[in-house]
């Protein structure tokens, strides 16, 4: 165990994967020489360690970067490519949605695409909606793609390593607001399984599911809720596809209530899928309505006053839990 930031943990995962397997290479805009000289960036110093054959700076060409990953993975390499900001994934989406996700199926299982796409996400750095836009439900809606979203340094390392060595395409979402967060990280090659949620804190009255930085919004709501005598069970989803249905359903069957929290737009967001799943599969256990905490249906604003309205806060979580508790 040692103390690492989230970014350093990602960096360690990339380093270990490249030391372990010659077939791993990384590519993207500024993954070698970056405008940020910051040891909390995932690709920091990798060019120095592994050289320009394996650490490839690319032109500003997201379709080409994603195509590179699809084509190279089909030839047996394990590409780890970076799409700088989540909204830019729209430029790469044909290669991901129509190719990475579909070509194995259409080959009748003859081809496989063991590629990893790292993408930076986050709301709250004032850059506005073309740099901040969480599109996880687009990805989750597209068959053939897996998507994970770590919220701790330990899981950042473990999920990225698992993603890189997974035989299928995996999108790893990195919350920028977490890059400098410190945490205990196991040394060596650790693998966090895909499709396994993490029980953060047990409780009896209401299940709260979150992922990424939204988990910490939930944590800030726990004290005020407990002061009101409400005991919450908090689940860090970690992996959206595959989804740990059992963990959520078991918890809801115990608490009888569900609140889902994410920073993406609430309308057609990933929380809708979880709400529907619980309604279909654990309806008899529900004691109150499923509540979703997410952003209003507007582009991510730039002014701090507007950003605050966009981004769910602990008070929104408290309100949602109270509503389903009818308190």
């Amino acid at each position: 165990m040692s103390q690492k930031t989230f970014g350093q943990a990602l960096n360690e995962a990339l380093t270990i994967s490249m030391e372990t397997d010659e077939n791993v290479f990384i590519a993207g805009e500024g993954v070698g020489v970056s405008i940020h000289q910051d040891s909390n960036m995932a690709t920091y110093d990798l060019l120095k360690k592994f050289g320009p054959r394996r650490v490839k700076d690319t032109p500003v060409s997201e379709a080409a970067i994603a195509g590179l990953a699809v084509g190279a993975s089909c030839m047996g390499l394990r590409p780890v490519v970076e799409i700088m900001f989540f909204p830019f994934i729209t430029l790469a989406s044909d290669m991901l949605v129509n190719h990475a996700g579909k070509l194995r199926y259409m080959s009748g299982g003859k081809s496989s695409f063991p590629l990893t796409v790292r993408v930076k996400a986050g709301v709250g750095f004032g850059a506005g909606s073309q740099h901040s836009h969480n599109l996880e439900s687009w990805i989750a809606h597209s068959p053939g793609l897996k998507i994970v979203w770590p919220s701790t340094p330990e899981d950042a390392k473990g999920l990225l390593l698992t993603a890189i060595f997974d035989p299928d395409p995996v999108i790893v979402v990195e919350d920028m607001m977490l890059y400098r967060m410190l945490g205990e990280v196991q040394t060596g090659d650790i693998r966090t399984p895909l499709g396994k949620a993490r029980m953060v804190s047990p409780g009896s009255d209401c299940t709260i599911v979150a992922y990424g930085v939204a988990l910490y919004t939930v944590m800030k709501a726990l004290n005020p809720l407990s002061e009101q005598g409400i005991s919450c069970e908090v689940i860090d989803l970690r992996s959206l596809v595959p989804l740990d249905k059992a963990c959520i359903l078991d918890s809801v069957r115990k608490t009888g209530r569900l609140v889902v929290v994410h920073e993406a737009n609430r309308f057609c967001g990933f929380g809708a899928e979880l709400a529907a799943m619980v309604a279909e599969e654990a309806f008899e256990a529900l004691k109150g309505p499923v509540k979703r905490v997410g952003a209003p249906q507007i582009p991510v604003p730039t002014a701090p006053t507007h950003e605050k309205i966009f981004k769910p806060g602990p008070e929104d979580v408290v309100l949602a839990v109270r509503e389903t508790m009818k308190k």
């Binding site: 379709a63 590179l68 699809v70 190279a72 089909c74 390499l77 044909d94 290669m95 081809s111």
Partner: peptide, 25 residues
Amino acid sequence: VLMTSTVVGAGPPLAIGAAFAQQYK
């Protein structure tokens, strides 16, 4: 014949991946 794509214009970005793998190996 590694793959075909019917998305018009999708072949070339896929091909850079295949060609890169050949160069890399």
